[in-house]
Amino acid sequence: MTVLDTDFLGAATPADEIDPTADLGTARTQRRLTALYAARDVFVAHGYHGASMEEISTRAGMSKPVLYTHYASKLDLYLAVLQVYLDRMVDGIRDALAVTASHEQKVRRAVLAYFDFVDEDAGGHTLVFESAVPSEPCVRWRVRNAMGECAVLVSAELRAAGMDGIRAYACAFGLVGASHSAARHWLDAGRPIPKSEAVDVAVALCWNGLSGTTKR
């Protein structure tokens, strides 16, 4: 988690409204956060290739030279925005599993975390799973690494349930992949059924498979 992590649900302070009496560290952090908000909006609206640093700087209320003092390139800024969403996704899984509950309840919470991730900010979901720059190695690596972190968290629970390490990791990747695919389909289909029902379907698929290989 970085100091710039944010829920991206509100609005950052425009650059020209930042308190000039704030200490330099706080003011710089606020300007970087303002740029992230602006970049998020522009990347979601126009995609990576359609976005321009000029539009981002205008939306952030700062000049392009100032923007470049915070982020060296458009890709650098895109990666910063992307990482915030990836951190949120991983933290959602971590929080879902950090409870005292049955294994089946933890599976439900993990699946629900993916549905919440795609449901609560479709723009962030698009940046993570439908990146316009998937051929960029650093983008692929960050997404793959975040999905791997989620699988590691799930596999730890499966090992605790009695599954050996190799099978636990393989099953964890299966659960992670099935969960985010089901959540994406539900969103892309226009939320045809209530989220709770869609989660029930995904949980039934995952749990019916896992329950036969773990100790309940």
Rank of each mutant, 00 (worst) to 15 (best):
K215S: 12
V201P: 00
G174F: 07
S131G: 09
L9C: 10
G61K: 04
E55W: 02
A113V: 09
H49Y: 09
P134T: 10
M62W: 03
H125M: 06
A51N: 07
V84W: 00
A38D: 04
G209S: 10
R184K: 09
R108P: 01
F117C: 04
T34D: 01
D87P: 00
P134G: 08
E136H: 14
D116H: 14
T34E: 08
T58P: 00
A45G: 10
L67E: 03
S73G: 06
V66L: 12
E17M: 13
I18M: 07
A132K: 08
C171I: 04
I166H: 10
G177W: 03
Y71L: 02
Q30D: 11
D164F: 09
A113G: 06
D116I: 01
D91Q: 14
H46G: 00
D91G: 14
R40F: 14
E104Q: 15
T213V: 15
H180G: 00
A38P: 05
T13E: 13
S73N: 07
R109G: 09
D23A: 11
R159C: 15
V107S: 03
V111W: 01
E197T: 13
D5G: 08
S102V: 06
A122C: 00
P65L: 05
E157G: 14
T214I: 15
G162C: 06
I18K: 08
A27Y: 07
R94T: 13
H103L: 13
K106F: 03
